Simulated scan of single mutants.
Amino acid sequence: MGKALIIGAGGVASVVVHKCCQNSDVFEEICIASRTIEKCEALKNKLDGDRTKIQTAQLNADNTDEVIDIIKKFEPDVVINVALPYQDLTIMDACLATGVHYVDTANYEPPDTPKFEYKWQWAYKEKFEEAGITALLGSGFDPGVTGVFTAYAQKHHFDEIHTIDIVDANAGDHGYPFATNFNPEINIREITANGRYFENGKWIETEPLAEKRVYNLPEIGPKDIYLLYHEELESLSINIKGVKKIRFWMTFSEKYLTHLHVLENVGMTSIEPIEFEGKEIIPLQFLKAVLPDPASLGPRTKGKTNIGCIIRGIKDGKPKTYYVYNVCDHEECYREVGSQAISYTTGVPAMIGAMLIMKGIWKKPGVYNVEEFDPDPFMDALNKYGLPWQENFTPTLID
């Protein structure tokens, strides 16, 4: 059917490449492009021989002209951006210049200050409309599938949605004293930022990790979950009409939080530059360099994830609670694609979003978040491509 340019060669990109190759009727040809050409070649060598043709290219995605050049050379139908969120805008600019559809999994982040806002990308809406191309933002799991889950609930289960609690629980164990399951720089910036949630038209801010609950979740049992701010809250508060309250929760073990607090106390999570031996370095980037690469965690990680939405509202005049979620097994993911479940749950939806654009199902000029499209084709694809969802079990709030 067409061609996809995949920018990035880390753990998530690896899943996207595997899934595109499993879906060769749609992805007849792909190009893997990254700053580190060796990673691209390693992915190509692992999958060469499948029906999907694979090319590789070296690319500095900070440079719009380089992205434009590779798009002109490869002529893809869609660009799947699974690089760093700092590079979203340069890649979107390149897509505008070449008239190619765009998909990413995380909102643009200014390198100097963690913001977790869509405003920079939403500002491209008219430009993409005029160019006649689609930009699909946040087609990962959260953001991504959780937005699709919410749109599905709104379409099929509620007359009014009042509250949404997104719960991201990881019961996996990789054996390291401290490691992050995705890009350490992004992960730690999220966790150390103030918490924030939406209620009655206003944003309420909390101290980092100040609000804690314990939920007994299907297949993984009781877990400590903490309130964070996550970017999909911003888009859902606008796109889910009438919602009164939206929160995001994530699990952390006491061991993980102890390590994080120590690193924070000694300044290692800072993004303020410091001088060291005559060179300027950013402590958090140095910490990233010494921590295990998330892509290396796959063979070590055991256990499951449970990510879903607990949604409350009104149906036919009566109060209703609806819980929709996915459980993903780290070891099964590794057996299938060589990655742990965190990368898997992000990479599969990125492929699905690109597939729906290429098929013309979600193709509409402009810039959109996933919950603005018909959720049904995406929900069907989740079951088909490795992220089956379950519904109607209400988790027990223990504390």
Rank of each mutant, 00 (worst) to 15 (best):
N45Y: 07
N81C: 09
D93R: 12
Q58C: 06
I71F: 04
D62N: 15
I71H: 02
D48V: 15
I71M: 06
K72Q: 11
K44S: 07
V78K: 13
D93F: 04
D48Y: 10
Q55Y: 13
T56Q: 06
N45C: 07
I68T: 12
I71L: 00
T64N: 05
I54Y: 02
L47Q: 04
D88P: 00
A57S: 15
K53C: 10
D65S: 11
A94K: 03
K73P: 06
Q55L: 09
D77I: 03
Q87D: 03
D93I: 01
Q87P: 00
A61T: 05
A83P: 01
V78W: 11
V67F: 02
V79D: 00
Q55A: 15
T56I: 11
V67K: 08
P76Q: 15
V79Y: 08
Q87H: 13
L47K: 04
I70Y: 00
R51Q: 08
K46M: 13
E66C: 01
A83D: 09
P85Q: 08
A83K: 10
D65Y: 06
K44W: 00
N63C: 15
V79P: 04
G49Y: 10
K72G: 01
P85K: 01
D69F: 06
A94C: 00
D77V: 04
V78H: 12
Y86F: 11
D77L: 11
